[in-house]
Nucleic acid binder design. Structure first.
Lengths: 188, 188
DNA sequence: CGTCGGAACTAGTCACTGACAAGTCGGTGG
DNA sequence: CCACCGACTTGTCAGTGACTAGTTCCGACG
């Protein structure tokens, strides 16, 4: 494809390149000039679409929250909180590039409309999953915070390889075992 | 105090300044030149003590893991896993500057001896706390991962103000409620 | 008491980055 | 066919990390 003045789909191309870099080297390695080089445009072209670096990362994060919402919404209707928790962890591992940006407020424009909309979608999907945990004996707010904390913490620590080796190398199995402890109770 | 050629305790001074900046503006705002200006030395002086930026942040992280170990070791002997969990969250909130660096491997020199030693200390302190959870009915490795994931996730999300407002603004109370769900079980 | 070696710090520099301004290109609607 | 405007380029500036070479001072040793 010949080098044309108008790229045609620069925004998407930069976004894709950013996700690739994120996956390989993390958020710190993402810079506009390198992405421009990869895509074959001038160093200032990406700024036209994203404003600045935080605008770019915000777009990645928004895409990530949409993907997360998709993941949770696509769970079979029979799924319970346990399955949703495992899905959350799986999402984090499979879409590490997105996940590592989604929860870094300092990198993002918190007031971006697209980001807020995507966050809202994923929050609703999570609320829906947690609703199944409301058995009357526990405060649903506490239960929701606990469930989210557990899977979010597990995903975070797993991605950092901070967990002890004993937990094995099968994310889904480990996540399920951990989530089961909360959902089914320690003393079933 | 007159400006002398030898600062006297530059390493500690830079470290303190770094923690201050971290607390105010997060890791991204920490740069060697600004710290040098704050402390009143030339722009390259900090590098003499820390090598590079990651060396500085590694020193902060090591200090953080030591502080965490101190916190956990100072718990009264009667404390159970629940109290340890609350202490973990309290530590994260009270020492946010340190906490925000401790679990960012990409910012650190993972092979730094001081860092490894401090991590080892805090790991042992956590293992000790989790030992109280070994009641035979659950795999201790799973229980440990679950407990750590829960409090780590809660602390992380709390610091990001990502949790819904319903959980209140009392960290300790909220952390205790959430941790209780895991320790005592959802259906007591 | 001198001197001398090395640690602590300064000064200068380079490559790289984000951000901005001004100009150019080219598709599209009137 | 032409004016407009979004898409992109070119040029530039300040700030940063990292490196090198030079300067100052402390303290140990003869």
């Amino acid at each position: 494809m010949a080098r044309r003045y108008h790229h045609g789909d620069l925004r998407q191309a930069v976004l894709t390149a950013a996700v690739e870099v994120l996956g390989d080297s993390g958020p710190a390695a993402v810079n506009l000039r390198d992405l421009a080089r990869r895509v074959g445009v001038s160093h200032a072209a990406p700024a036209h679409h994203f404003g600045d670096r935080s605008g770019l990362l915000t777009a990645v994060a928004a895409q990530g929250f949409d993907l997360l919402a998709d993941t949770l919404e696509e769970l079979p209707p029979s799924s319970d909180l346990l399955e949703a928790g495992v899905a959350y962890v799986s999402f984090a591992v499979e879409h590490r590039a997105h996940f590592e940006v989604m929860f870094r407020p300092e990198l993002l424009r918190a007031d971006d409309p697209d980001l807020r909309a995507a966050q809202e979608r994923s929050n609703q999907a999570m609320d829906w999953a947690i609703a199944g945990f409301r058995d009357g004996s526990v405060d649903p707010v506490v239960a929701g915070a606990a469930a989210w904390s557990l899977v979010h913490g597990f995903a975070t620590l797993w991605l950092q390889r901070a967990l002890p080796a004993d937990v094995g190398d099968d994310v889904e199995a480990a996540a399920r075992a951990v989530a089961e402890l909360l959902v089914r109770g320690a003393n079933p």
